[in-house]
Design a protein around this nucleic acid. Structure first.
Length: 479
DNA sequence: CAGATCACGCACG
DNA sequence: AACGTACGTGATCGAA
């Protein structure tokens, strides 16, 4: 029942665009940075006084911010994307996502039984009771009582993370049970119990979508986070069966971008081979394997394809040979040869990544497709690790940020068409490369087309954008 | 011995 | 040592 009107300037968002790495965009900060007045004498606790001064200086603040936004070519990003997105996110928050509490209770009950059983077995094997949830106590059991080899340490003691446990799994029968226990407890505490406690009186979960949190331009979701609901493992994926439409007049439609970050990389790097791959609609990881391993496409083995997939992901993150070797459990030398071969075959990508680092050094920041900026002060650090980190940020941010620009454009377009055409379907969630619509059954075919076309045509790149559409009676089925 | 904060571990793209 | 997030639990510090 709330309508947002006359949204044309938001100081928090303008300030976020001018520096997305700030942690706060409160009125005192904005006064300090953009009003031109000296704020050193202002009492930070005097909220009323600050608000009054902010309103008084709003014209100056607004003018100064818009001048800066203009200088960076972010007018369109601000006016046509971020400002209109406020209403879209607000609508998504108000609508929420209907959740079947019974399903979550059932899964939770099942998890409890398995957790209890595992707890007993772990105590038996360990020969004593301890808090399995405490990495400190677990470390004592594994590395002092059972004398398992220490794989790595944290700054406070033994590391017991999944990677360590996996390495220890054939050394002692307790380890697989710990791994399993961890997974089940995560599902129970965060997803069954956690989500149940968030269900509103209307039977729906109303997450908050924050527009000024991430340094890259993505949105984030809190209380609860609906952008990290399990999907990778079947056991967790079942949580998605609890995310349902309002009633049997609706279904869930999901539209997800296929390989959006690699497509963005192809576009901004203008690498001939990568563009060609996407234009010809090739299996991108198979093509990469073929190039990196120097073999025909049809001779690529599943192992080679999976390694090439890791190379493709690694490229986007600025991964080192060491990182890739660890990821693939291969020698550093072999990992280096993969990366070297990749850059020989995709030299446009290499040139682009180098130029991103130079940009960050020259200008102090990097930019996305829509001219979104992110300052990279780390790149000038005298600390080698910090500097390397800055270089990875410089390589990754334009890719991740441009993908964020694109899906935001799609969201504004999908939302405004639904509104203009008075459709009963509604946009309820975004998960970085995916939009989720609660669609009215009579509108299913129309909405599938609408979502696909608005997402695929959000921007025009040198490669096609491809969106996969799925429909189901819950989020699990819409895959 | 309250409640905030850190440390760890791990869910997603 | 591979980018971006959120959050639950235990441990720790040290309020009133």
């Amino acid at each position: 029942g709330i309508e947002l009107k006359n949204l044309n300037f938001d100081g928090e968002i303008a300030s976020y665009l001018l520096n997305p790495s700030e942690s706060k965009y409160d009125m005192l900060n904005l006064l300090n940075q953009y009003s031109g007045i000296n704020t050193s004498g202002i009492d930070a606790d005097d909220k009323n006084g600050i608000a009054a001064l902010y309103v008084q200086k709003l014209d100056d603040i607004k003018r100064n911010m818009l001048t800066e936004i203009n200088k960076h070519g972010m007018n369109e990003l601000f006016e046509k994307i971020e400002m209109p997105l406020i209403e879209v996110l607000s609508s998504m928050e108000c609508l929420g996502f209907k959740v079947d509490a019974q399903i979550l209770h059932d899964i939770g009950f099942e998890l409890s039984e398995e957790i209890d059983k595992l707890t007993g077995e772990i105590y038996d094997i360990a020969g004593s009771e301890f808090n399995i949830n405490s990495p400190k106590q677990l470390g004592v059991i594994l590395f002092e009582k059972l004398n398992l080899p220490v794989i790595k340490k944290t700054k406070t003691g033994y590391s017991t993370d999944a990677e360590v446990l996996e390495e220890l799994s054939d050394k002692h029968e307790i380890v697989d049970k710990i791994i399993n226990y961890r997974q089940l407890v995560k599902l129970k505490s965060t997803y069954t119990d956690g989500l149940i406690s968030c269900i509103g009186k209307d039977g729906r979960i109303h997450s908050s979508f924050n527009q000024t949190v991430t340094a890259t331009g993505r949105i984030s979701s809190t209380e609860p986070n609906l952008q990290n609901i399990p999907i990778k493992m079947e056991q967790g994926r079942r949580i998605r069966k609890a995310f349902v439409p309002e009633n049997d007049e609706y279904v869930i439609i999901s539209g997800d971008y296929s390989q959006i970050e690699l497509r963005v990389l192809a576009h901004i790097s203008q690498d001939k081979s990568l563009i060609n791959s996407f234009v010809n609609n090739e299996d991108i990881h198979r093509r990469t394997a073929s190039e990196v391993f120097g073999i025909p496409m049809d001779e690529v083995t599943p192992l080679q394809r999976s390694r090439a997939k890791a190379v493709n992901f690694g490229i986007i993150y600025g991964q080192s040979d060491y990182g890739l070797s660890k990821e693939l459990k291969i020698s550093r030398k072999e990992a280096k040869s993969y990366i070297d071969n990749y850059f020989k075959r995709y030299s446009g990508v290499k040139d682009y990544l180098d130029s991103a680092i130079l940009d960050a050094k020259d200008k102090g920041y990097v930019t996305t497709l829509m001219n979104r900026i992110r300052y990279i002060p780390e790149i000038n650090s005298t600390n080698k690790n910090v500097k390397k980190f800055g270089e990875r940020l410089a390589m990754n941010t334009p890719i991740q940020g441009s993908a964020a620009d694109i899906i935001k454009i799609a969201m504004v377009k999908v939302y405004s068409r639904i509104k203009k055409e008075k459709l009963k379907s509604r946009l309820i969630l975004q998960v970085h490369d995916e939009l989720i619509v609660e669609a009215y059954k009579n509108e299913i075919d129309y909405m599938k087309q609408l979502i696909k076309s608005e997402m695929e045509n959000a921007v025009k790149l040198s490669v096609p954008l491809v969106v996969d559409i799925n429909v189901g009676n819950n989020w699990y089925e819409a895959k």
